[in-house]
Design a protein around this nucleic acid. Structure first.
Lengths: 257, 257
DNA sequence: CCCAATTTGTTCGTATGTATC
DNA sequence: AGATACATACGAACAAATTGG
């Protein structure tokens, strides 16, 4: 039985919102996990004694949050769904859309998170993983000769960091680094940062990254940390010259790098 | 004129989702900010040539993401709304609900972010702000004598960190630290961590924090960083003994500490 | 390949609630 | 108090998608 809807709260929520919350706590209380099928629309209409439209709006709310997915047809219905990284990234991106982040803000975080990630990964990666990192690095084996090429190299460089983060056993660290990399990738494509090729910028990044992979392979945690700290410091210095305010996205379920 | 709805994408979105995305990009394209009123329901029905129910579901989707709010009555309508920190916290919390974070994961991040925050704030706080911090500290002036008291002290201690973060000029750093503090507060209340009073734990926190405020007042950035690093290290050591897996929340727009 | 059953998706007409003037 | 303008909710019918026979 679903929890009763009582509108005692001072913040008057609309009925669909109340229903959505009721379903949410219902799911939690029963410990239903991803894949579990919720009662059908008709069922919910009866249980909550509400119109179809109201129930549907409630489902939409949950769907927008990434908590359920619905399918039509026999065997279809509404299913509990694990919130995807893409969805979480998009939703959090909406928040920062209004926050006027600066390059400095982003790099203040990167500068501490990325070295920490590198240090925690040293000596813990399989040869296959290290090889995958080296694969990405080949994208910028030679210096960019056009603005276009440089943009692509920057994106590839960010993908390197995203890939590294994916190898972390820490879901929080993984998400944060990948989220930030995505934000930076967005502004790299949306604005014409890097208008003129900057010979120094990402070709030097290659050097850092190959040294990093070597340190990771060797299991030298301190060296990995130091290399990435220096890399971040450098990237920050080079980027801060270009722009200050990040115009943020506002996108559906953006493609993740 | 709203963007036309074209279902060319491979990922077939439902019509309300398409409408929601169309409205979103419409708002972005026109640069409409918080407070701007969208066309009325009837208007939208005409413009998109869709039924009321469909439009309403689209609005619900945007509302769930915290991007719009709607009011009834004359002068009412749907308004662009700045995504609140509460909403963003709740939405991101949904993601981590499924991620099985451990205490170690959370503290790996805290251990690098909190010292960085402290360092960046040293010498930049007004006397009023420093006083506000000291106010929160009074909540745990004396050691806890019951489990209940200790829980409260832990929450207060987290509020101290949240308050500190609020003083940061970096929206990203502010959000992350406050988000993490909220997660920790949630598990502190939801689970019976800290079953028996731990004399050492948060009374020693008081010592750290008063030393921290002193360093902040003096503008000693290095000392502030070191104090908080030590504090984090200590808190981590004490917490890791108790529990390993964080059962996350799954809440509406949870009260923020 | 088609048909039927099941379940969500969409439409429309109407009525109710709520805030402003 | 009443009129107005708006979102909100209801209910019944119809459409589309998926699955299995």
């Amino acid at each position: 039985m679903p929890p009763a809807i009582t509108r005692s709260s001072p913040e008057r929520l609309s009925r669909p919102q109340q229903v959505a919350e009721a379903i949410k706590s219902w799911v939690m209380a029963n410990g239903w996990g991803p894949g579990h099928r919720l009662p059908s629309e008709m069922d919910l209409i009866e249980r909550f004694s509400m119109a179809k439209g109201t129930i549907r709006e409630a489902i939409r709310i949950l769907e927008a949050q990434g908590l359920v997915k619905s399918r039509t047809g026999p065997g279809g219905g509404v299913f509990v769904h694990q919130v995807s990284e893409e969805r979480a990234t998009a939703l959090l991106g909406n928040y920062f859309y209004f926050q006027n982040l600066t390059i400095d803000d982003v790099y203040q975080i990167r500068t501490v998170l990325e070295p920490e990630l590198a240090a925690s990964l040293a000596g813990r990666l399989s040869e296959a993983q290290l090889r995958a990192l080296e694969d990405v690095m080949t994208c910028y084996a030679e210096p960019a000769r056009s603005a276009q090429e440089e943009r692509e190299q920057h994106i590839a460089s960010l993908r390197f960091h995203a890939l590294l983060a994916e190898m972390s056993g820490n879901p929080l660290l993984r998400f944060l680094i990948r989220f930030i990399a995505n934000m930076l990738a967005d502004i790299t494509v949306s604005r014409k940062l890097y208008a003129q090729p900057n010979q120094e910028l990402w070709s030097s990044g290659l050097d850092y990254q190959s040294r990093l992979v070597a340190a990771l392979r060797k299991g030298d945690s301190a060296a990995a940390r130091a290399i990435l700290a220096e890399h971040m410091h450098n990237a920050h210095r080079l980027m801060r010259l270009q722009e200050t305010v990040l115009t943020q996205r506002f996108l559906p379920e953006g493609k993740i790098i």
